[in-house]
Amino acid sequence: MYPGPSHGGPDPYGHDPRGAGRTPRSGRSLLLSVLLVAGSLGGIGAIMAGMLTYLTPAAEDEYYGPPMPVAANAMELQNPPVPGEQNPVSALSSGVGPGGLDAPLTAAAPTAAPPLPVVQPPEPLKSNGVKPYRIAISKIGLLAPLMALGVDAKKTIQTPPLSKPNQAGWYKYGPIPGQQGPSVVLGHVNTKSGAAVFSRLKEIKRGDTIKVSRSDKYVVEFTVDGVEQVSKTAFPSKRVYGNTGEATLRLITCGGVYNRKTGHYTDNIIVYATLSKTRRA
């Protein structure tokens, strides 16, 4: 279902995405198993002494996911998607916090499941040939275009151009927003010129809504289940990219402490959300 390069085997942190799955709906079994490692992008948003503060870097930040020893500045796609069995989320304690400025963000346990949905999710939409083109988050005043992100010849995931700070990107080899499984949207927190599309992402908390407009005239609304901040050396690839039985959404950007010498941030901010409503535009 999702083309892409294959390396096979577990990721360098012991997680084998091929072991994650979900209960298929409408006879379709979808699986997105990707591992993103640090790339060269902008980022702002730090936690210092348990409180989130903005840091304005003079250089570009690395991107999303744990750094690979052999590719410290790349986001590498690993392991082909294959079917598997779904572990019931309700049977596990996630540890992913509600998020928001009134709740300092922390990382959940490495083995934790994604946070439980706030509302009962509706049936995922059929999405063949559909493209998402806009994302809106009224809580943080965000309205931004979505571009498709693929992989290049080096098997690294393409990223939104730094020249367009308000541009977010959707990983096109994963589920389409509204389709069963985890759709992934990436965005800068800042560039050399200032704040970017996800500069206020850390303000989102459980219960907030995210809307994505699609080319089939549907607007799909997701309700945030939780937000966490994790070290890039311990990126929770299974929790983020593992299969889900519902249509889910993950927003990812940089966070943590900015190192001016390396031009990198220490962490990622990850928003987990579940489809809660669909309507015709």
Rank of each mutant, 00 (worst) to 15 (best):
Gly178Thr: 08
Gly178Ser: 11
Gly178Gln: 03
Gln179His: 06
Gln179Leu: 09
Gln179Arg: 08
Gly181Val: 11
Pro182His: 12
Ser183Gly: 09
Ser183Cys: 06
Val184Asn: 01
Val184Met: 02
Val185Glu: 03
Val185Gln: 00
Leu186His: 10
Leu186Lys: 00
His188Met: 04
His188Cys: 13
His188Leu: 07
Asn190Gln: 13
Asn190Leu: 00
Asn190Pro: 06
Lys192Trp: 12
Lys192Asp: 14
Ser193His: 15
Ser193Tyr: 12
Gly194Asp: 03
Ala195Arg: 07
Ala196His: 02
Val197Lys: 01
Ser199Trp: 05
Glu203Val: 09
Lys205His: 13
Arg206Thr: 15
Gly207Tyr: 08
Thr209Pro: 02
Thr209Trp: 05
Lys211Arg: 15
Lys211Val: 13
Lys211Leu: 11
Val212Glu: 03
Arg214Asp: 00
Ser215Asn: 15
Asp216Tyr: 07
Lys217Gly: 13
Lys217Trp: 00
Val219Ile: 15
Val219Arg: 11
Val219Thr: 13
Glu221Arg: 04
Thr223Asp: 06
Val224Tyr: 08
Val224Gly: 03
Asp225Lys: 04
Gly226Gln: 10
Val227Pro: 02
Glu228His: 05
Glu228Trp: 07
Glu228Phe: 10
Glu228Asn: 09
Val230Trp: 09
Ser231Gly: 13
Ser231Leu: 06
Lys232Asp: 11
Lys232Ala: 09
Lys232Ile: 09
